[in-house]
């Protein structure tokens, strides 16, 4: 029983930690692009990587202040969004999807390549750039704090606090935008671009704005991740993370302000709970060692998440927050 409580606590910490914030910010960005504007960005992780490396390179290599690095990361994400959007947004939706997925993989390979080593340190990546940020914490960051049966370092707590502040501000921004006429145009573009064009709206500009805004959220997520881990390694930014963010968004409910946030928390909770729980069952001998060894757990938990998502899509296709009537309209 105590073990179970412990597993729950560990999973709870995971659902509140910087990884959950990372996925929440990525998913908020995807929500703006995919949920509201209908843009298929399959390379959200590229924006996150530019955010993370924006800080890392600025501080470690160029020696400029942390906050200037944040601006560099955001600017890089905006530029990437513009570069991706300029040629593809006039075309059908699939072209953006192809361009983004290729860019995400290409940028990662570029950042880990030997020729990029002078800037990105290649596969080893950069570290030691978050000192300025951690030093701002109002509490002692070298000490460990115990919260609800879990142990947090002061630094972790500080990153999580600022990260959730970002998530809250981001959600507020999305909320304000989506109840405005601007959000109405975006949702209309998702439904039918030509109808929106025939009513005098410049669809291209709105799509570009959505792509840039979503990319900026992605960059913020990448920054939280880089600062949380204290390092920026290209292979941390595998494009699988984009699809986990999509999973979080669909879990929570697309085109809902809180959908991506709650979805990311639940996703991380399930992943961590499955992990700890399965290891517990194996070590207790409830699951025989020759059926499932503790080394398999890391893979099995994703299978469990996959099964969970399938069940969700069958029985609650709108996600946790979605409106079932709205989702069912697609079937017509």
């Amino acid at each position: 029983m105590a073990d179970l409580l412990n597993a729950l606590a560990v999973a709870g910490k995971s659902a509140l930690g910087f990884q959950a914030i990372f996925f929440a910010l990525l998913a908020i960005g995807i929500n703006v692009q995919f949920g509201y504007a209908g843009l298929l960005n399959f390379g959200q992780i590229a924006f996150a990587m530019l955010g993370g490396f924006g800080i890392a390179i600025s501080v470690s290599k160029w020696g400029i202040p942390f906050w200037a690095g944040v601006l560099v990361g955001l600017a890089a994400a905006v530029v990437l969004a513009l570069l991706l959007g300029l040629p593809t947004l006039r075309l059908r939706a699939d072209y953006l999807a192809i361009a983004t997925i290729a860019t995400a993989e290409g940028l990662r390979l570029l950042f880990r390549s030997v020729s990029a080593t002078p800037v990105t340190n290649g596969t080893r990546g950069l570290s030691g750039f978050n000192g300025d940020f951690i030093a701002l914490a109002p509490w002692n960051t070298s000490q460990r704090y115990s919260i609800l049966g879990t142990s947090w370092s002061g630094g972790e707590l500080w990153v999580a606090a600022i990260g959730w502040l970002l998530v809250i501000l981001g959600s507020l921004l999305v909320f304000l935008l989506m109840r405005s006429p601007w959000g109405r145009v975006l949702k209309s573009i998702r439904e039918d671009e030509d109808a929106v064009r025939s009513l005098g709206k410049n669809v291209y500009v709105y799509k570009m704005q959505a792509l840039v805004l979503g990319g900026v959220f992605g960059a913020l997520g990448g920054m939280v991740y880089a600062v949380g881990t204290g390092s920026a390694v290209p292979d941390q930014y595998q494009n699988a993370n984009t699809f986990l963010a999509y999973a979080a968004l669909i879990l929570g409910g697309a085109a809902r302000v809180l959908g991506p946030v709650i979805g990311a928390m639940i996703l991380l909770f399930i992943l961590q709970f499955a992990d700890t729980g399965l290891r517990l069952l194996i070590s207790n001998g409830v699951i025989p060692e020759d059926l499932l060894s503790s080394t398999d757990v890391a893979q099995i938990r994703f299978i469990l998440v996959g099964v969970g998502l399938m069940l969700l899509l069958i029985f609650r296709p709108q996600g946790i927050f979605g409106d079932r009537r709205e989702v069912m309209l697609d079937a017509r």
Binding site: R184, K187, S188, K201, E326
Partner: peptide, 20 residues
Amino acid sequence: LSRLTVLQNMLLGAQDQRGE
């Protein structure tokens, strides 16, 4: 625009909206 309400459909038609 299927997943917008009838009223939202109508409001989209208005021109020169500052909130856009």
